[in-house]
Computed example of a mutant assay.
Amino acid sequence: MALAVVCVVWGTTYFAMRIGVATVPAFLFSGVRQVIAGVLMMVLLLLSGQRLAISRRDIGRQFIAGTLMIALGNGVVGWAERYIPSGLAALIVSIMPVYVVLIGYIAGTDRKAINVYLVIGLLLGCVGVGLIFRDNVADLGNSNYRYGVLAAFFACFCWAAGTVYTKHRPSAAKTLVNVAFQLTSGGVVLLLGSIFLDDYSQLATVTSDSLWALAYLIIFGSLASYGCFLYALKHLPPGLASVYAYVNPFIALLLGYFFLHERLTGITALALIVTLGGVFFINKSYRQKAKI
């Protein structure tokens, strides 16, 4: 259920981020979102009678995870969406399971997870992304578009690294406490980066749509979904926990098509079939491993 929430809700966050960063400086937008969400999580935990019990070592681990996934992952994707369609950003991020498996294999933390079904699934996922990316090759001549694409690939890698790190450097603290510290630390890093990277003159043209998008992302994109993601990551193999990256793009594509007039072609339909086939084989590979 937690993974299902992540698959659906995070698919909508690309659409919301696209609206938000249209009139708000990108790193400031993401930083404010994550800090508010992290602080709200802490307040809710305290009001419910829970203690924010976490060791110094685990605070350091959550800072690293928050920097990789929240700041360099999610925050950089938000910046990329100033220059590329939300659906394309989600599609690029969908190769994240490939990064997760490769990083885990190189680091020697998850080599036993490699089997024929997993390889087939990852390859199909890459082919699905490639099919849609083919529609955007001509746009790479635009330098801003090209930088947006490269930034999205970089963000995807950072999120994958954070996923592997979180899985193999677990915290003894409760999941929601970890969520609060990751969101807050990642948000602080984004706010510091915003000082040097953002153009604050944009603040004169902030729209109500961007503010509503910010509110949605705080409540659903960060508070609700990120907790579900860490819960799923804790109880599922990292490769399986990351298959949401194959589902998110198609939700983002549909929302972008209907509400932002982003392009949707016949190749996209073929990519949907191929990519969902990849999800099937990845799930099959981990079910087989569980039986063993």
Rank of each mutant, 00 (worst) to 15 (best):
V8T: 13
Y14E: 05
Y14A: 06
A16N: 10
G20S: 07
G20Q: 03
A22L: 13
A22H: 11
A22N: 14
P25V: 03
P25M: 05
A26T: 03
S30D: 15
S30R: 12
Q34I: 15
A37S: 07
L40A: 14
M41A: 13
M41D: 01
V43T: 05
V43C: 03
L44D: 06
L45F: 06
L46M: 15
S48N: 13
Q50G: 15
Q50A: 15
I54E: 02
I59Y: 10
A65V: 01
L68Y: 01
M69Y: 00
M69Q: 03
A71M: 03
G75N: 08
G75I: 09
G75F: 09
V77H: 07
W79R: 09
Y83E: 14
P85L: 05
L91R: 06
L91C: 09
S94N: 08
S94I: 07
Y99Q: 10
Y99S: 11
V101T: 06
G104R: 00
D110I: 04
A113N: 09
I114N: 03
N115P: 02
V116I: 13
V116G: 12
Y117T: 05
G121R: 02
G121M: 04
G125D: 00
G125P: 00
C126D: 10
G128K: 03
G128T: 04
L131G: 05
L131Y: 02
I132C: 14
F133V: 15
N136C: 13
V137N: 10
D139H: 14
G141W: 07
N142W: 03
S143R: 13
Y145F: 12
Y145K: 11
R146T: 14
G148N: 08
G148T: 06
G148D: 07
A151F: 00
A152G: 06
F157S: 08
C158Y: 05
C158W: 03
W159A: 02
T163K: 02
K167D: 01
P170L: 02
S171V: 08
S171I: 05
S171Y: 00
T175Y: 07
A180C: 05
A180Y: 01
Q182W: 06
T184W: 00
T184M: 01
S185A: 07
G186N: 07
L190G: 02
L190D: 01
L192D: 09
L192I: 14
S194R: 01
I195L: 15
L197C: 12
D199K: 10
Y200Q: 13
V206P: 11
T207F: 02
S208N: 14
W212M: 12
I218W: 02
I219P: 08
F220V: 01
F229S: 00
L230N: 08
L230F: 13
Y231E: 14
Y231V: 15
K234P: 08
G239D: 03
L240S: 08
A241N: 02
Y244P: 05
V247Q: 06
N248T: 08
F250N: 00
F250Y: 04
A252R: 00
L253V: 07
L255F: 05
Y257S: 15
Y257G: 12
H261S: 13
L264N: 06
L264D: 08
T265E: 11
I267G: 11
T268S: 09
A269K: 12
G278Q: 01
G278I: 00
G278V: 00
V279I: 09
N283Y: 11
N283T: 12
N283H: 12
Q288P: 10
Q288L: 12
I292W: 11
